[in-house]
Design a binder for these strands. Sequence first.
DNA 1: TGGAGCTCA
DNA 2: ACGCATGAGCTCCAG
Length: 634
Amino acid sequence: MVETPVQLALFETQDSYGEAHSGAPTIPRVAQSSDDFAELLREIDAADRIAFDTETTGVDMTRCDMVGMSLTTRPGIGWYLPVETASGDWHLPADSPDALTLRGALNRSRALLAAHNAKFDLGVLQRHGMPITHPVYDTMIAQFAIDPFARGALGLKPLAKLHLGWDMQEIETLIGHSHVSRQRSMRDVPLALVAPYAAADADATWRLVDALQPQVAALGLERLLNEVEFPLIPVLVDMELDGVAIDRPYLAALSVEMTARLRVVEADIYRLAGRVFNVGSPQQLANMLYRVLGLQVDVSADAAYLPSTRAHRLEELRDKHPMVPLVLEQRELAKLLGTYVDALPALINPATGRVHTHFNQAVVITGRLSSSNPNLQNVPITSEMGRRVRRAFIGAPGAPDSPRACVLSSDYSQVELRVLAHLADDAVLRAAFQRGEDIHASTAASIYHVPIAQVTSEQRGFAKRINFGIAYGMSSFSLARSTGMTDAQAEKFMADYFRRFAGVRRWLESTKRKMSCDGYVATLYGRRRPFNDMRGRDGSEVRRNERLAVNHPVQGSAAEIVKIAMIKLQKALRAGGYKARLTVQVHDELVLDVPREEVADVRELVRREMEEAVQLSVPLKAGIGVGDNWDSVE
DNA sequence: TGGAGCTCA
DNA sequence: ACGCATGAGCTCCAG
C-alpha cells in the first residue's frame, strides 16, 4: 500500500528526533479525556504565562484547517489538544462547548499569553471559534525588534537554537519537503508524533520570552512592543481575515480588452522590427533598439554593454523611432495584466470571495508594514491604465437588498515631514505646520524670502523636492538631478534651506553623529537601526549609512504613528458597533470598507483617531475620500 | 536564483 | 574623482 514508505519515513524521523531530543526537553501531555482537559483548565487559571501554538494543514491562515493546539504553562511540559481524532477520544472541534470553554479560560486569564508569529495562530483560532482578545507576546516580533538583520532567521527553530541551544525537530521530518514529491498534511501525521513536536514548540516559545526579555529591556523596546507592535497583531488578523473585495467580472472584461490591445501593440512592434522577438526580454529588446535599429542614447557607454531599456531611458527616445512608444505601452500592459488583471482572480479565496493579503510586521527595517500575496501597497495609481486596475478594488457586498459598502481612504498629509519637524524641533518648520500652511509653498517662501502668496509654482516645486529629499539624506547633486538646476544652483539652494531651517540641519548632523558614536539610531518608540563601525571605510559607504541613519527615525516614527492610529481606530470602530472594516494600510493611508449608512460617522471617527493618534509638537492632519472603489476615493 | 524593470509611499 | 535618495514586492527572463 501507499502507507508503507510513509511509515518508514516516520520511523526514521523518530530516530533522528530521539537524538535531538536532548536539546528540547519537553514532556508532551496529550489531552485525551475530559479529565485531562479539566486539569489543563486548572493549570491555565493558575498560570503566569501561557505559550501556545497551533498545528494546521497549511501556512495560509485564511484557509487552512486546525489539526491541534499545544499549550505550555510552565517549562518542560507541553499539552497537546487534538482538534479531531479518528477514535472516540476527547478532542477539541471548532465551536464546540470545550472550545468555548478554552477560549473563555484564555481570555479570562491574567497570564501573559505568548506565541511565535502570533498573527497566524490568532487568525487560525479566530476562524475556529476561539478568538483571543488578550494582547499576545510575539517572540518573532520581539526578536525582529532586537535584531532587524535577523530577518531571514526569525523562525522558532533558529531562535530556539540561538537563545536556548535547542536543536529542534524540523517540521519537514513530519510532513516531508514541499519540493520533494508531495508534502503530507499535518492531519495525516500520527498523534504520537505530532504531540511531542507541537509540545516542544509551545515550550520553546514559553522559554524564549525569558531569553528575549532582558534584551528587550536593555534596548528599551518595551514601549514599542507593548504599545505598538503587540496590540497591532489582532488588528492585522482582522484585516487579513476580512480581506478585500474584488470586482471579478470587471477584471475579466478588462483582461479581454487589455490582452487584445497588447496583441495589436506587439504585432506592430514585430512589423517595425521586421521579425518576431521577445519584447519582454530586456536583452533582446536592447539588441533590437540599439544594434538593429541603431538608436543612440546620450550616456557614456561602456562598449561591452548595451544601454538599459528602462522606461525613463526609453522616454528620451520616444520621438526617435515609432517602436519606442509601442514598447512603453507593451511594458505597461504586460505588467498590469501579469501582476493584477490576470493574477488577482487566482488569489481570490473561494470561501470568502476576497483576496487576503499578508501584512508582515517583521520585514521592513524601519518598522513599516509590508504586504505580500498580493502586495496591496503598490497597486498602480499614477497612470490612467493603472487607475483602471485600481477600480477593481471595491467595497464588500452588503446584506441582501442593500448596496455594496463604500471604500473610504484616509491619508496622512505630510506625515514624515511633520515627524521631522517634531524630531528636529525646528522652529520654522513647526510654525509652518502650526499655521496650517501649504508646507511646500511655505518652505519656498522661507528660502526665497518672499511672502507665501508670491511663491511661483517653480519655486514651490523646488521646495517640494527638497522637502521630500531631506528625509532621505539627499545631496545637492541629486537635487540638481531631480530639479534640473545646475549643481551650483542646487548647492546654493540647499545652503539657503539649511540657513533657514537650522533645527533640521542640527538634527541631521546630530543623527549622523549618533550613528557613528553610538552605532545606532532610533525612532520615537525606540526601534533601533544598528550600524557597523565605518572607520576606515570608503567615503561613499559612510555617506550611504548617513542617509540610512537620517531616514530611519523619520520613516520609522511615521510608521509607528500609523500603527497606533490603526489600533485606536479599530478599538473605536468596535466600541461603536460599526460594521466598517479596515482593509488595507499603505504606509500613510488607511483604507476601509464602510457601509453607506455609516459613512458620515466613520469619516469623522477615522479623522479623529488618525489626527489624535499621538501628540507631537505639530498637528497631524488626515485627508479623507469616499467612493465606490479604490480609484474613485479621489 | 539573481538581475532588470516596474509599482507604491 | 566618485557617486549620486529611503523603504518594500512581483513578474519576467536567462542560466
